[in-house]
Computed example of a mutant assay.
Amino acid sequence: MPLVETLPIGADTAQWSVWGTVARIVVTDPARVAEAAELVKAELAAVDLACSRFRDDSELRWACRSGGTSVTVSPLLAHLVAAALDAARQTGGAVDPTVGAALCGLGYDRDFALLTGREVAPAVRVFATPDWRAVKLSVRELTVPDGVLLDLGATAKAVAADRAAAEVAAKLGVGVLVALGGDIATAGMAPAGGWEVLVQDRPGDPADTIRMPAGAALATSSTAGRTWGRPGEQLHHIVDPATGRPAVPVWRTVSVAAYSCLRANTLSTAAIVRGHAAPDLLGKAPSRLVTPSLDVLRLGGWPS
């Protein structure tokens, strides 16, 4: 997972482990940090119950077992699925929520914390995944084609960061930064000079310390963080929907700044999938791309 950290860590900060990564929150009023943490934990628990593909009791798993018939889902799951379908639409299918079966075929069939160190059988065949356009959502009526397993991992964590930050700012009246691994969202007033953030994937990788204004967001997608192996190959979790295989690691990491974490994550994930075409995809978005040899390409006014 990307080591994207707020600096410094003090009384205004709380952190804990969740979803195989680290959740960290920072607030502008240290006296409200405990309340803020409880609000964020509740939001993450609700998102997990709605859309985890690792829980048999999640609403998403229930919808995927519907045999291709339309089901009425909660407003939260409808929001999360809509975000995933919008990301697919915006990226021409580079970020596609129908990659769940491909990820399971690759061995990513449980929470990543439980996957680490586990040997994956080499005999699993992996097929190209169905197209996201086969999934239908009308307000709260969701239809998932029979046999399709949705995976919202490319967008749900970013949506959760956006939602949690907005809720803390609205309910507690404080400025807040919510970081879920490489997904960062802010809301409310920023500290003087902005939110100071260290962007670095792994120890020893290139590092940038940047300042984010109020309301800004940042996402880092990595081909080096969530990896696992099976005989003869090393795998990572960002699947190219065109092949059902891990995207070719043209980039070790891509970091993108935007004014929602969902938008930032959509672009960073799509850039990994698009490989050499990533600079054209990113356009003027402030971005930092790191190659496997640790060379850094900064685009769109990313601070040097």
Rank of each mutant, 00 (worst) to 15 (best):
G107Y: 00
G107F: 03
G107E: 02
G107V: 05
Y108R: 02
D109F: 04
D109H: 06
D109W: 01
D109N: 03
R110I: 00
R110L: 06
R110N: 02
R110C: 08
D111H: 01
D111T: 04
D111C: 00
F112M: 05
A113R: 05
A113P: 01
A113C: 05
A113I: 04
A113K: 01
L114Y: 00
L114G: 04
L115S: 02
L115A: 00
L115D: 01
T116H: 03
T116Y: 07
T116A: 13
T116W: 05
T116Q: 09
G117T: 02
G117L: 01
G117V: 03
R118S: 02
E119H: 00
E119K: 03
V120W: 03
V120C: 01
A121F: 03
A121S: 09
P122H: 00
P122E: 00
P122N: 02
A123L: 07
A123V: 05
A123Y: 11
A123E: 13
V124D: 07
V124C: 04
R125I: 05
R125E: 14
R125Q: 07
R125M: 05
R125T: 12
V126S: 06
V126D: 05
F127Q: 10
F127N: 07
A128H: 06
A128I: 00
A128T: 13
A128M: 02
T129H: 12
T129E: 10
T129F: 04
P130F: 13
D131S: 12
D131P: 07
W132C: 12
W132F: 15
R133N: 12
R133P: 06
R133L: 11
R133Y: 11
A134M: 07
A134F: 03
V135N: 08
V135A: 10
V135S: 09
V135E: 09
K136M: 12
K136L: 14
K136A: 15
K136F: 11
L137S: 08
L137D: 12
L137R: 04
S138T: 06
V139N: 10
V139D: 10
R140I: 08
R140Y: 12
R140V: 08
R140G: 05
R140E: 13
R140K: 04
R140L: 10
E141S: 15
E141Y: 04
E141L: 13
E141F: 06
E141K: 14
L142N: 14
L142T: 12
T143Y: 13
T143I: 08
T143V: 10
V144A: 14
V144H: 14
V144G: 11
P145G: 13
P145W: 14
P145L: 14
P145K: 09
P145F: 10
D146S: 13
D146P: 00
G147L: 15
L150M: 11
L150A: 12
L150D: 10
D151Q: 04
D151F: 02
D151M: 06
D151N: 12
D151R: 01
L152H: 03
G153N: 15
G153R: 09
G153Y: 13
G153W: 15
T155K: 02
T155A: 09
T155D: 11
T155N: 07
T155W: 08
T155G: 12
A156Y: 02
A156R: 06
A156T: 13
A156K: 05
A156G: 07
K157L: 07
K157I: 06
K157N: 05
K157F: 08
A158K: 11
A158T: 10
A158F: 13
V159L: 06
V159F: 08
A160N: 12
A160T: 09
A160G: 15
